[in-house]
Design a protein around this nucleic acid. Structure first.
Lengths: 132, 132
DNA sequence: GGCATTCATAGACGGCTGTCGATACAGAAC
DNA sequence: GTTCTGTATCGACAGCCGTCTATGAATGCC
């Protein structure tokens, strides 16, 4: 975030460049409460249809950046509501923003998404070999 | 689910064996409202620390199966609360259950986890090449 | 300066969610 | 059958969440 926002909390404190197929997975070993709380915040941010579409709209954009006005016009929701959802995504570390003149542009944080993808990946060793 | 539960809703209607690095990603193109609603249900299920730890406890188990009694004893929460969280995960298609005698065993649905991992994966073409 | 535009914040409100205790259901042991 | 254990469901309640309107803050233009 590069605007007037305070650092807030930021759920992803270790945005390493872990690939999408890394084995730092949820199912490798039981996670502790602290890790669960941090990951849950990000998943909760993704657990809303509007926010999911916002992430998709931003990520699918060619230049990687989308103006807030374009995002607001894509929904039948008020501008403050969209702003609220963007804040949730920003506090989860999933998106970043930059002000240029009057407009504010949002972009994805790919490492954050990939980290979550890595968390969900299931190592072959953890997959049940038979149907039962 | 193999017990007395009705089919419920089941958020993951296409549990194909998509790898964790598939490009059916959120950022490939904007998703529609229906897809967003379905994905959001699964992410919302993952958006709770207790449920995240439940998934981790189940997935990290050697045999791939965990008895409910073992899960309940791992938390400072009542048994109905754990049962409720397991139901949420089950309705999201993330876990499955089977009754054997008095006990009920829960196991992961790896294809569901991997599908969500694929949704979060970021193709190289979508990654911004430069910081500005 | 004054005004318009873009976006964020504040406060309010209804609905959803996580939790509990109480209870019902399923299976095993007697 | 009865009883005991393990699990799911029910009903209630506090707190959170998504949404709105109203307002404030930042920037640009006159």
């Amino acid at each position: 975030m590069s605007i007037q926002h305070a650092p807030e909390d930021l759920a992803l404190l270790d945005p390493t460049e872990a690939g999408a197929c890394a084995q730092a997975a949820l199912v490798s070993e039981p996670i502790d409460e602290t890790a669960a709380a941090g990951l849950a915040q990000v998943f909760k941010a993704l657990g809303d249809p509007v926010r999911l579409r916002l992430v998709s709209l931003i990520g699918a954009r060619d230049g990687g950046e989308v103006c807030v006005c374009d995002l607001t016009s894509a929904f039948d929701l008020s501008q403050p509501t969209i702003s609220h959802h963007l804040k949730v995504l920003r506090e989860a570390g999933l998106i970043d923003s930059e002000r240029r003149g009057t407009w504010v542009y949002y972009r994805l944080v790919p490492s954050a998404l990939e980290r979550m993808a890595g968390v969900l990946s299931v190592p072959v060793s953890s997959r049940p070999s038979g149907p039962g």
